[in-house]
């Protein structure tokens, strides 16, 4: 058995790791790189708790192999706040109580950030369908959807 040697950037930092073919990006982030903010809720792409971006594209880290990622740019929840300053989404999620247990929160913030970068003023329906792959069992989604709307307004006026 020989592991694959992968070079990439993670949250802008040049990074290298060794992985087996079977290891997903989520396994690599959590077990090799110590980035445990991305959570495993299902391992099958159905819950979105491991949402990350690869070359700008929103994906489930559990459905990407680590071995695929030579040269890729990966962004995770750990890269959303810059230099200790929260992203507007993070601040609004706190202000609006848009989390309860918080296990889905990193994935939802990563996913919502991708949405707002593509669509600065999404409708409620657009937010709901964009986030349909991010399961939350605590909130009933109401406060999450409102927080994304408010964060969008904050970002538009920034």
């Amino acid at each position: 058995m020989s592991k694959h040697h992968i070079s990439l950037t993670v949250n802008g930092d040049p990074t290298e790791f060794l992985c087996e073919t079977e290891q997903t990006l989520l396994d690599v982030l959590r077990d090799e790189l110590g980035l445990t903010g991305s959570k495993e809720g299902c391992g099958s792409g159905d819950c979105g708790a491991c949402s990350v971006r690869v070359d700008g594209r929103l994906v489930c880290a559990c459905l990407v192999l680590g071995a695929e990622l030579n040269g890729a740019a990966v962004e995770t929840i750990e890269g959303v706040a810059k230099a200790g300053v929260l992203h507007p989404l993070q601040q609004v999620f706190l202000n609006e109580a848009a989390l309860q247990c918080g296990i889905c929160t990193p994935g939802i913030i990563v996913a919502a950030k991708a949405l707002l970068e593509e669509n600065a003023d999404p409708s409620e329906e657009e937010i709901r369908f964009w986030l349909a792959g991010n399961l939350c069992r605590c909130t009933g989604y109401d406060k999450i959807v409102r927080a994304v709307q408010k964060a969008a307004a904050v970002m538009r006026s920034a």
Partner: peptide, 9 residues
Amino acid sequence: IGSTQIQGR
């Protein structure tokens, strides 16, 4: 086919 995340792949 699938969610926004699945659509990315």
